[in-house]
């Protein structure tokens, strides 16, 4: 659907190709994070079994990995139009209504993601300046976790705009 945007060599097309590449890399990174988390939890089991020692950081880190996975992997899935949506109403609409509706919904999606990204950024910066930490064993700086939220939301917002533009071109 977004191919029309990234075709050609206009600056916009180049930008969209770059964004698309970034989305793919982030999705790949998200898969890597999942693999690492699985390996870590498995190591925790082995460590208790063979060395009688619990790796206290595993529970915490595998939780963080879910957060990273989700916000870094979400833009790629939107680009591929794979996020779970309820299609029972839209698929029965007459085709001449489907396009405008999809356009409006995509614009709306772009707006809410951008809005969320803005406040996500505000929270991240605040946590950075304030120096807040997680209340856990490892107690990492909170902004090290929160930053993926605005990043993911901005990329999602860009992707929604691309969807809207694609609707117009059709």
């Amino acid at each position: 659907m977004q191919q029309s945007l990234s075709r050609g060599s206009s600056p916009l097309a180049l930008l969209m190709r770059g964004v698309s590449r970034l989305n793919l890399y982030l999705a790949g990174f998200s898969a890597f994070v999942l693999l690492a988390a699985t390996a870590a939890v498995f190591c925790e089991i082995l460590s208790r079994l063979f060395f009688g020692k619990s790796l206290v950081w595993v529970v915490e880190l595998s939780g963080y990995s879910l957060l990273y996975m989700t916000f870094l992997g979400a833009p790629y899935l939107l680009e591929k139009n794979r996020h779970v949506a309820i299609d029972i109403v839209t698929e029965h609409l007459p085709p001449r209504l489907q396009m405008p509706l999809a356009f409006l919904v995509a614009l709306f999606g772009a707006a809410i993601c951008l809005y969320a990204a803005w406040y996500g950024l505000a929270v991240t910066l605040d946590q950075f300046q304030y120096g807040s930490r997680e209340t856990t064993v490892l107690a990492p700086r909170s902004y090290l976790l929160t930053w993926v939220f605005p990043l993911g939301m901005v990329l999602l917002s860009i992707q929604f705009v691309a969807q809207a533009v694609a609707c117009l071109k059709r």
């Binding site: 807040s132 930490r133 209340t135 856990t136 107690a139």
Partner: peptide, 9 residues
């Protein structure tokens, strides 16, 4: 108090 030691160490 132990639930916000990340804000107030």
């Amino acid at each position: 108090p132990s639930y916000y030691s990340g804000l107030v160490p």
